[in-house]
Nucleic acid binder design. Structure first.
Lengths: 140, 140
DNA sequence: GTATGTGCAAACTTTTTGCACTTCG
DNA sequence: CGAAGTGCAAAAAGTTTGCACATAC
């Protein structure tokens, strides 16, 4: 997913957020890196063009973007947060012997799950979203 | 799941780990708390009976137990690790507005998924385990 | 002009590490 | 006894916070 600066500005505006170079840079980084980057990855990428950006700002911006739903946090079993700019529903492949995380989209599977949970309710719980954590090995 | 001290000792022995009071206490805590505790939760619980246990020890023990497969780390989107003593395959319900995580077992669903992925291969990836992250709200 | 956002540095939280001492087998 | 494990305290890593200054609208 590659979003233009104009698209990014549009999105920020829709959320009622001010358009700042830092926010644009951070969103661009997430879309460009596209590999579920950490705050640090984002910093490193942005430093090239914005040498003065502060780490605190990166965290603050990421928080706001998550809050507004422009990006998502990814569940991992490390104590490092990773971010995802892909908003369309999708699943994740986790490399069991690496930090690699890849997207996995599968409409047919989603339909199957939707059907299944239409009948099968979970008592005491209202499902909002189902994501698969597919753990395994990348063959490469 | 409530494991006796003898069962715990057995498990430790099977893994080639020495049987120490600290390890027993930590495993007991995880099995008793049974709610995907954090290292801190475990500490707090253990302090009652083992006032001298060190945080460093808790982390070291947890690491070894994960490494040996006696417990698992849970993927969350917080920067705090949580642990799970249930080894049978199961899924998790995540409260979207709380830190609550509950187990969800569903053999029929597991069979469905297994069938599905028997036919549908993911190129470049060897699946080892599939876990559902079911996000939603606990009605209570 | 004013509300919002940024930079910086300090603080905080969670986890890791090193090393002397202790304990299990 | 020797290898493995523990306690302690210091440090690392990741994230959050407060406040003065800067910027978007």
């Amino acid at each position: 997913m590659k979003a233009s600066v104009d698209m990014i500005k549009e999105k920020l505006k829709e959320c009622g957020l001010k358009i700042t170079p830092q926010r644009i840079a951070i969103l661009e980084a997430i879309y460009t890196l596209n590999n579920h980057p950490t705050a640090d990855n984002i910093m490193a990428y942005i430093r090239k063009t914005h040498p003065n950006i502060a780490i605190g700002t990166v965290y603050k911006v990421l928080d706001v973007l998550v809050e507004k739903g422009l990006i998502k946090r990814i569940k991992t079993e490390k104590d490092i947060m990773r971010y995802d700019g892909v908003l369309e529903p999708h699943h994740h492949l986790f490399g069991s012997s690496s930090d690699r995380i890849e997207d996995y989209s599968d409409e047919k599977l989603d339909k199957l799950l939707k059907e299944y949970f239409k009948k099968k309710r979970i008592p005491g719980f209202k499902i909002e979203e189902i994501k698969l954590q597919i753990n395994g090995k990348f063959l490469k």
